[in-house]
Amino acid sequence: MSGLLLQIEGLRKNYGARRILDIERLALHAGESYVVTGDNGVGKTTLLRIIAGLESAQISRYQFEGRPILLENFPQRLRQEIIYVHQHPYLFKTTVAANIGYGLKARHLPKAERETLVKEAMEWAGVAHLNHVPPQELSGGEKQRVALARTKVLKPKLYLLDEPTANLDAEARRQTIELIQRLRLDNNCVLIACHDYELINLPHMRRMTLTDGRLLPQVAAASQEQII
């Protein structure tokens, strides 16, 4: 197994009096793909958003690459390493290329370098032909691919993908799954929350189940019935 990338201990999240998450330990390694399954509303999205620093929670220890991180003031440096992609990705009302280059611009990369990286990312995701289409007019699958390209171009160490194949038709789903597999092959760490049988049972996928707020390892491959 590759190096430990992220380690979280004692994660607790309450909504009012109700405890949503009660996770003793979560460890993610570089170059590995993880999937979290569980019923709707069990807290999968919340877990991903907490890891990404988009939601607060009680956490005893949050370590990234061995360094302890204080989540109250989520450091900008960590935003460059961990990127969360919404279930229905939001594309800015600009162009596909501007969307993909957004994070690079925020990092103040020179224009020429940005353009090269954006072009590469568009080819990687197979969206180069969509640059003249307004982002709002893209299909769900195309939006998902643009969002993945927009994330990949920043070379984060951890991808947090929330239901990346939900509501996609068969072809869009196949393309998205292929991109996710390529992310893993490029030695990235990917954590996915989903119900997608095919995605869960991909080879090398490490499976976990979220039940009653607790994260349990799932050794055997999931069956469709189990997921549904």
């Binding site: 990404a52 988009l54 900008q76 935003r79 460059q80 990127i83 969360y84 992609v85 919404h86 229905h88 990705p89 939001y90 800015f92 957004y102 994070g103 925020a106 990092r107 927009r150 994330t151 920043l154």
Partner: peptide, 20 residues
Amino acid sequence: PRAHETAVSLGAGTTRAALT
């Protein structure tokens, strides 16, 4: 709300995320 979250998640600072 995803607009602001996406901007922040992609590394935009407070001002850039607000302008976005």
